[in-house]
Design a protein around this nucleic acid. Sequence first.
RNA 1: GCGACCGUAGUCUAGUCUGGUCUAGGACGGGAGCCUGCCACGCUUCUGACCCGGGUUCAAAUCCCGGCGGUCGCACCA
Length: 559
Amino acid sequence: MKESLTDKVTSLAKRRGFYWQAYEAYGGVGGFYVLGDLGTKLKDNIVRLWKKMFLDKYGFIEIESPTIGPYVVFEASGHVGSFKDAMSECLKCHNKYRADHLLAEQGIQVSESTRLDVLEHLMNENKILCPECRQSSWRVTAFLTMFQTNIGPYSENIGFLRPETAQGMFVEFKQIYESNRGKMPLGVAQIGKAYRNEISPRQGLIRLREFSQIELEFFFNPNNNSCEYLHQVDDIKMNILDEKKVARGDEIPYRLSAKEAIDKGYIIQPWLAFFMALSQKFLNELGVKSEFQRFKAKLEGERAHYSAQTYDQEVLTEKYGWIEVAGHAYRQDYDLKSHTLKGSIDMYVVEELKEPMREKKTLAYVNSKRVKDEFNGKASEIFVEISKYDPKTLAQKLNEVGKIELEGVVLGREYFTLKEVEETISTRKFIPHVVEPSFGIERIICATLEHAYSERENRVILSLKEDIAPYKFAVFPLVKKDGLDEKAKEVFNMIKAEGISVLYDDDGSIGRRYARVDEIGVPNAITIDYQTLEDDTVTVRKRDTWDQNRVKISEVLKT
RNA sequence: GCGACCGUAGUCUAGUCUGGUCUAGGACGGGAGCCUGCCACGCUUCUGACCCGGGUUCAAAUCCCGGCGGUCGCACCA
């Protein structure tokens, strides 16, 4: 089989030091990798571009929270439940299956909390057949895809390495919200490592056990979910496979703008649609053209436990086909609600209504004179009891049943004065809803490299956009003599002093040096020749066209 | 996790079937030097590998077992 583009990129990545598998000195460990100099620079540049496009432009903010969290957090978030699968192993052929799936096929419903020994009993008693070898001999064990550790010296204090960065933003929501002076809607991002103990990590950087995420949690008021930026992405047509198309295996996408997709009902939240379009533009900026991108809906059964709608953003690769580079999920209020229920902080937000609402209501006040007159010594007791209710509730009860029952006394309507009042309501409490664009940085690096890779005259060219190229300039003396090399070093030092990433190379022929920097994506190569010594001009040679221009040294950084 | 195939320098590979001549050969790459007036020229020189562990044998890159890793298929990917 012909070596695929993906394989070529992998081998280039290792040869030139973008990334490689970790722990090779010890035979390698699956699912872990190292970013080299070029890789870290590329990653930093990608992250910087993302921040510019998603945060700075919209005034959204960023936090950094711990990568280890206590058991309760992931219990509340639902991860302990849904990351732990009961795996049933066939003792004959040793294939493993989800126990609940096999039981469900036979119409036996079990819950997530069903004990393992009970599951095993059910599997064997009901003679569930192994799909592979048609035997029925099972052992049921748990497999937890979160990495588990202990916090402090006591083994019963279990902690987990976070399987997503998102929970940090949910658990800390109230503090984030307060310290940003109650802004709503509020976009909060976190960029960092997440960990999943994959059963079989494979495919290079595509499935890792430790990986980097960029996650943006966008908190908004569900009563006011219109997105003011939608018009900014009108020109972006997305390839969309909605739930219906996915369900029937239709691979031909709709081509729609965010607004059109909302209007047609394919995307149920305007903000979700906006971020999807913006994400497509982000990948465009990284050099992945729109025709190599699509958004594929997750079906109800495959969605995460928190999601009401999820679109995977996919990029076409030669070897692996469509790979997911980002997930766009409508998480509703699932997470904040869970943390409110289990934790000690209420994650609601108070909304000030633009148009205060006038609400009519009836209030009931007890006629104290009449009560005193008729109940004498018991009156003060009655007042204490009545004060437990507010006037609105009292009025409601009187309207519904015509009386108030207290300890040993029943007071009828005649003991109260009813007042009709109109109240102004200017605030309302709500738990924000969340849409989440979530990016896997390593996969984006793969997609970016693959779509930047090309070959010309048997040489490799990595056409990384200038914004994200690890090195912006390379400086070469045409030949290493007659003072050209000293002059070249001067230019090199000048650019370096500006804080711009730049390489110097005087080894071998000039053509060889161009070739070397082409394959790591340096967009500009500056050559110092004999004319430079006379008039301080140099040639700037462009990576993608191989065109050369003569410019003054002082102008060189403006190219 | 299961199954099939595979594992020799940074990369590609010769050698493995049929154990010894392998102190493991080549090409590319990389370093140093020479050369070089614009797209991987040439020369000199250096660099560097049998995945790990155990077994069989007088002798293991080669045969056997286990582990680790890779690719593919199944399962998993919340």
